[in-house]
Computed example of a mutant assay.
Amino acid sequence: MTGEPPHIAPTGQECPTRHIVVMGVAGAGKTTVARHISEVTGLTFGEADEFHPEANVARMRAGIPLDDAARWPWLQALAAWMADRHRDGVSTVLACSALRRSYRDLLRQGPPSVQFVHLDGPTEVIRERMSTRAGHYMPVSLLDSQIATLEPLGPDEDGMVLDLRLPAGQLAISVADRLGPPARPGSVMTGESRPSDGLPR
């Protein structure tokens, strides 16, 4: 995990924090965009895939979609991670599928407020991304299941929908501009700039 160091208010009370979840189906580019947001704003980056127990990973490797019984403990761990960062006065940006409203509701039970960035776009673009990436356990065969599970953000949910075909750096700047976390001075990211692995996830 990377990002800003903890900051505790002199009074010992919790500091205001921001918590952003970059959501969408596998292959939408969540990890890449979330890392860019972290670099632009200084928010602490979190990768939801790293919170999955081995049993979940094994199921997905085998092309078996996760059911809610497998997802709930994972989502609870993510909500707790954000809540812990909040108590330390640390703001976060998390790459997480968050496909259903009920999943997002659970994530909102962590810190006082969570904002969502839904990376959306044509299925054929996502499928192509998934077919060319390496080193990730999510097979292309699970994409249709994820699309069927996806529930778009409701009008009462705090967030925004962005076109996943845009450059990751441009998307990160859009998030900083529209959702409020200030960009670091001198943070100018181009569409060609990428984190070290360059893989859309």
Rank of each mutant, 00 (worst) to 15 (best):
V125C: 02
S102V: 13
E14A: 14
Q170E: 15
W74F: 05
G110H: 00
R129L: 04
E39Q: 14
P10C: 03
T44R: 15
D84R: 15
P181K: 09
E192Q: 14
Q13R: 15
G110K: 03
M82A: 14
S91Y: 03
P200C: 01
Q109Y: 02
L162E: 02
V117G: 01
G63C: 05
R165W: 01
V25T: 06
P112H: 06
I126Y: 03
W74M: 03
Q115R: 13
D49S: 07
C15S: 12
V161S: 14
A83R: 15
A98S: 11
M160D: 00
Y103I: 08
R61L: 03
D144I: 03
F45Q: 00
M82I: 08
I126T: 14
A95F: 00
L171E: 08
P181L: 06
L162W: 02
S102E: 13
D68E: 13
D197G: 07
G121T: 02
L162M: 05
Q76E: 15
Q170G: 10
S131D: 13
E54K: 11
R165Y: 09
T32M: 13
R35Y: 02
L150M: 06
S38V: 03
D197K: 03
C15E: 13
W72P: 09
R71T: 02
R85Q: 15
A28D: 10
A58P: 10
E192I: 11
W74E: 08
V175N: 02
R71E: 09
V117S: 05
P112A: 08
P73W: 04
G29Q: 02
H19A: 05
D156R: 12
V93H: 09
A55V: 10
P185V: 04
S187T: 12
V125S: 07
V57H: 04
V22M: 03
P10E: 07
T190K: 06
H118N: 12
R127V: 09
R201M: 11
W72M: 08
T32D: 01
P65Q: 06
A58R: 13
T92W: 11
H86F: 07
L78F: 06
A77G: 10
A176H: 03
E157M: 11
V161M: 11
D68L: 07
S141P: 06
L143E: 05
M82R: 13
P65L: 07
D158Q: 14
S196E: 14
A9S: 13
G46E: 10
E4W: 02
Y137R: 02
C15T: 12
P111H: 01
H36D: 08
A95S: 11
R133D: 05
